[in-house]
Design a protein around this nucleic acid. Structure first.
Lengths: 253, 253
DNA sequence: TAGTGGTCTAGACCACTGA
DNA sequence: CAGTGGTCTAGACCACTAG
């Protein structure tokens, strides 16, 4: 006899579980604390492990939990506010932001990048790979595409590749007068390369920030940065941004 | 279809499946086309249905697929660019944006909202609920919190609630001189209410845009808008934003 | 009513971490 | 090594949509 309650609109078990766990996290657990393992939790709630995991995945997506294979599930700290708006009027790599140049290559870009850059497909571009650290943790991996024509003085630079060359390219880019920028934010999933740099598994949810930098009436550079969606809150505008934590469910009927 | 041997780092089946399906979507399917059902697809690839679903979930998260219960899985169109940056210097509800007022109530706010508004907890706020439509589809649900002190002339307005009152509150709000705004974007999951307005299931991934509007040296209004992460690309800056579609996997080792 | 995606189960094995 | 989360299976039933 299964129908014991559930009113007229039966709620999925994993969703109800998410609510229960959310309340438990708010009231009974401290940041960094380790939860019981999945098998114990599933038994305690009387559900299959897969169902329990579905609830944990939700909470991880919301930045409430952090799961590490071989270690356990811990209560995550509030998301870090990461400024991306103040850079809208500054070249990448200026200021004291915590970007760290990793590598730089010169090659033909993917077709989609060439299109966005409005260059010929054969036009080579410098591809600078950078990592952004905040509070000692990697929060973003970026690919910066700079057409050769944006930094013509660089063709004869010494360093063939590596971080030194990346910094040289940025230095040269900053000689241009930035006229403006525009960008977009969307949800994506980390590919193998980004996942490794962000210390996550492939497929982890990321916020993809695409920015086009304008100078000399053209697109002088294009940035595609992937931010860890579980740990980051992207802030725009003058100060650090607003921090709102959704309270308990609104509007139950 | 050579046996691309899995080297020392075996790739999960669902991840490999995601790659294969991505390539198939790029080359063999048109937008809106219906895929074979999950049971057939799973059999075709020789995996369990749950594994196949894990791959489909990834693709849905990336905005490549759209799944509807009772109907099927279809190829999703490219994400819509939705401007949120140009509003940074305009009050909500001005301009020709496709917001539609739904309701308005006057009550004490949740604690987290009161804190962000920098008001006393007992200070009542107008809560305006709006929906944003683009291309005939709902893309965002918003809760706009306006302290009573921001629109004092409104205390004696006629309409007690409903869309009419919502519009009246906005009208009154626009009499203030906007001094600036700041905001943040983060990943969240739709609660029951937002999910219904966005035509999604609870837990669906959303981009939560929190904006604080400044006027008279105070926070005059606070907006919490949830955008459908599967169909929306949030654009900032002057024009429509950059559109980059990640090509095939980079950097296989 | 037939067919779809959504939920759930009870197992199994694997990859990784840390003692 | 023992214990953790990650992957995978082969089923089952349910909620929803459309003809």
């Amino acid at each position: 006899m299964g129908t014991t309650q559930l009113e007229s609109v039966p709620e999925p078990k994993y969703w109800h579980l998410r609510t229960v766990l959310t309340e438990a996290l708010d009231s009974e657990f401290a940041v960094g604390e380790i939860l019981p393992n999945e098998r114990d939790l599933a038994a305690r709630f009387g559900v299959a492990r897969a169902t329990l995991r579905q609830a944990l995945e939700q909470l991880e997506l919301e930045g409430r939990l952090q799961r590490r294979r071989g270690v356990g599930t811990t209560v995550a700290p509030p998301r870090m506010g990461v400024a991306v708006g103040t850079e809208q009027h500054a070249w990448p790599g200026t200021g004291e932001d915590a970007w760290q140049a990793v590598d730089c290559t010169l090659a033909e870009p993917p077709a989609s990048v060439a299109e966005a850059l409005e260059t010929d497909r054969e036009q080579a571009v410098h591809t600078v790979r950078r990592t952004r650290m905040t509070h000692g943790q990697p929060v973003a991996a970026e690919l910066l595409y700079i057409p050769e024509s944006s930094v013509p003085e660089l063709t004869a630079i010494d360093a063939p590749s590596g971080a030194a060359r990346a910094r040289a390219v940025l230095r040269e880019l900053h000689r241009l007068e930035l006229e403006g920028s525009e960008g977009a934010v969307e949800l994506g999933s980390a590919n193998a390369g980004d996942a490794k740099e962000l210390d996550r598994l492939p497929g982890a949810p990321v916020l993809v920030v695409t920015t086009r930098y304008l100078a000399g009436g053209r697109t002088a550079a294009l940035s595609v940065a992937t931010y860890r969606a579980d740990t980051c809150r992207l802030t725009f505008g003058d100060s650090g941004g607003v921090e709102i934590h959704q309270g308990p469910e609104q509007r139950a009927s």
